[in-house]
Design a protein around this nucleic acid. Structure first.
Lengths: 212, 212
DNA sequence: GCATGTTTGTTAATAATTACACAAAAAATA
DNA sequence: TATTTTTTGTGTAATTATTAACAAACATGC
């Protein structure tokens, strides 16, 4: 029954569709054609139809797509119709920024714990969650069956921490450290390498200036 | 003299090469073959050679690549051999996290100013930079010929702010707001949509669980 | 209820990306 | 110095991704 694998390029586009559909829904738009969505999102209508068709037909000929329905279906595909528990490892500014981002809560990501190795932070609170010593992480993750760990710690600490996380049954790591983690295949890793992103921007500044 | 355009897929890989080469350099490795680098980085040797060849030959048959030389060349390609001035718009946790990341300084990104609309923050300092009222942003950017603006503000404020930035001659926007900006082509935009990234992670958790 | 227009789902064509393969060049070795 | 080994640069093949095209399905209006 092996479903055909859907490329990560398609998956990477889904959150953007989801965002635009959410906006349309909020504006009270009931239906939309791939053509209209295409002109709003600046992608081809063909790509939109192909992308949605990877998951079965969500639209109807002569009508288009029902905004609410499509929105719900994409949320199911992305798995954000269910709740995901999450801990933040590294309670610095970046950790705090992420923990404090209330929109994640709205998408079902429930912030359950925060850990740091700096004793000054123990007992301080991020939203309504207490920062705990990093030593308590493993038992906490096991006891509370935490699914996602957000790694906002320096890169030299990130690699051993990823191994610890793997050992206590984490399902996924959202990695902000500037290093590639090596973990078993069953653990999903999503990297946010901010410096890579900034370097790409730098390249494009250069390119534009040299092409004038 | 139109140079052939290099695909963004290639550019997106350069920072990762740069990171690994930096590590090798630090370890005192002098030379490396595409084959060796391939096994460290888990990409094909062919792709490595193709990528580097987009910019001319950096290696030598029978020898491989000189680590230091290649490192320098990539830094030139990425434009991080020069300094780039940068302001942060939105002095919340995310803004502070980015401003405080000293590695950026090492790569030539010089943090020159921070702006916010919250009067409580005026005069407070992020590293050695004072947070100023957002009203002062336009003159500051013009007077100091700032190249890059980091947008760490809510999405409803991001769109008008991008227009203001465009008007005062910014070259690039590093956008952390969950919205797509519309600015003239001459302004380079690099998006970091954290919620998109988290949704992708959520999809992959789901996918793994349904495929067991 | 029929004709007309719209829009999807899907197949085909094109474009882009990645991997393969090997000659040519240099290094290492004998 | 001659020979063997290594390894790049690059042309070509294979794969993947994107765009175009169109028949089938439905909605709309008369």
């Amino acid at each position: 029954m092996a479903e055909k694998e859907i490329s990560q390029a398609v998956i990477a586009r889904l959150p953007r569709y989801f965002r635009y559909l959410g906006d349309l829904k909020e504006k009270g738009v009931e239906r939309i054609s791939s053509q209209e969505l295409s002109s709003i999102m600046k992608v081809t209508a063909s790509q939109i139809r192909q992308d949605f068709n990877n998951f079965g037909g969500f639209g109807q000929q002569g009508y288009g797509y029902n905004v609410s329905y499509l929105y719900e279906e994409i949320s199911k595909i992305l798995g954000i119709d269910k709740q995901h528990s999450l801990v933040i490892i590294g309670a610095g500014h970046l950790g705090k920024a992420i923990a404090g981002y209330t929109n994640f809560t709205r998408r079902g990501f429930v912030f359950k714990g925060a850990f740091d190795c700096n004793p000054d932070l123990y007992g301080t609170r991020i939203r309504d969650v207490e920062v705990r010593p990093i030593e308590e992480m493993e038992s906490f993750v096991k006891d509370n069956k935490i699914e996602i760990a957000v790694l906002t710690i320096p890169k030299d600490q990130a690699v051993p921490m990823a191994h610890k996380l793997a050992d206590c049954g984490i399902k996924a790591i959202w990695n902000f450290a500037h290093v590639d983690l090596e973990v078993p295949d069953k653990i999903q890793v999503e990297n946010v390498h901010l410096s890579d992103s900034l370097m790409k921007l730098s390249y494009n500044i250069n390119r534009y200036e040299n092409n004038i």
